[in-house]
């Protein structure tokens, strides 16, 4: 499975990058390559030009910005798994990053690449939605920041226009907020069948669900205490409320997918309630 032929460029600056992106023909932006290269090997993606971001150092930086954390687009999952992001976001980022695929993939795959690809089952989409992140997008003319809900428009579809790239993800300071996270996989390291990220507010848990759809926030707040414990979830009123919420968000999903998503949400809620959101 060898890719079709392409030209390759590795610009040393964002200006040079935007010049390349403004040219004619199909282009692909190469970050970690862990999604792009398989697609090219299968010849499902056939760009005439591959533009490598590895030569632009600012995309790899992590900086504090008045309490927020700005993570460059080509920061890898492994870096985040190893704690590269400082402050209160660090432990939740470590937890999410450490569950992505396998270490060898995490060594190359990037947070920006994952967001640009926008696979509903990608961990960052759901987790960053829950963290109320903003996506920084740049083009030849300048930059803008877009909230996650406005960035992800649907499966594999984002607000990125032609000639634009993600330059960073900006995470606000979550303070003392407890997070919960649950990913259901058929097999270790595989894409999620169900994904749930939760943040605990004073009046209950706010929940984001991914995988069955692009990340959506469930309406309502849920009580962690009602979902704690080892006994079965099915039949509990709080669980049925969660399930109903998922069903409303994903009317076309089959019953099992809804069930799995609802269970994932409940487990994430219980985890947040138990203060286990740390790595």
């Amino acid at each position: 499975m060898k890719p079709s032929a392409f030209r390759y460029e590795r610009p040393a600056s964002l200006d040079a990058l935007f010049d390349l992106l403004s040219g004619p023909g199909d282009k692909a932006v190469l970050a970690g390559g862990q999604s792009l290269i398989p697609a090219m090997n299968f010849r499902m993606a056939r760009p005439a030009l591959v533009v490598d971001l590895a030569g632009i150092p600012e995309l790899r930086e992590i900086v504090r910005e008045d309490g927020a954390i700005r993570i460059g687009a080509t920061v890898t999952h492994a870096q985040l798994e190893d704690g590269a992001a400082p402050g209160p976001v660090q432990s939740f980022l470590r937890r999410v990053a450490g569950g992505i695929a396998f270490r060898a993939i995490r060594n190359r795959g990037t947070i920006g690449g994952s967001l640009a690809h926008a696979d509903p089952a990608a961990d960052w989409l759901t987790a960053l939605s829950c963290m109320q992140a903003e996506v920084e997008i740049a083009n030849k003319s300048g930059r803008r920041r877009v909230a996650m809900e406005a960035f992800v428009l649907g499966p594999m579809t984002t607000a990125l226009g032609d000639g634009e790239i993600i330059t960073a993800v900006v995470l606000p300071d979550p303070g003392e907020t407890a997070f919960g996270w649950h990913k259901a996989v058929r097999k270790s390291g595989e894409f999620a069948e169900a994904l749930a990220a939760v943040r605990l507010a004073p009046d209950g848990a706010e929940c984001w669900v991914g995988a069955i759809e692009s990340p959506v926030r469930l309406p309502g707040r849920y009580d962690p205490a009602a979902l704690a414990g080892d006994s079965r979830l099915g039949g509990r009123p709080e669980f049925e409320a969660v399930r109903q919420g998922v069903r409303e968000m994903a009317p076309d999903a089959d019953d099992y997918a809804v069930q799995l998503a609802a269970v994932a949400v409940c487990r994430a809620i219980a985890e947040a309630g138990a203060g286990e959101g740390a790595a």
Binding site: Y8, L30, G33, Q34, I37, P38, N41, V50, D52, R103, A104, I105, N107, R108
Partner: peptide, 8 residues
């Protein structure tokens, strides 16, 4: 560790 099949 990196997947050499996914690097150019």
């Amino acid at each position: 560790p990196s997947r050499s099949c996914l690097m150019l």
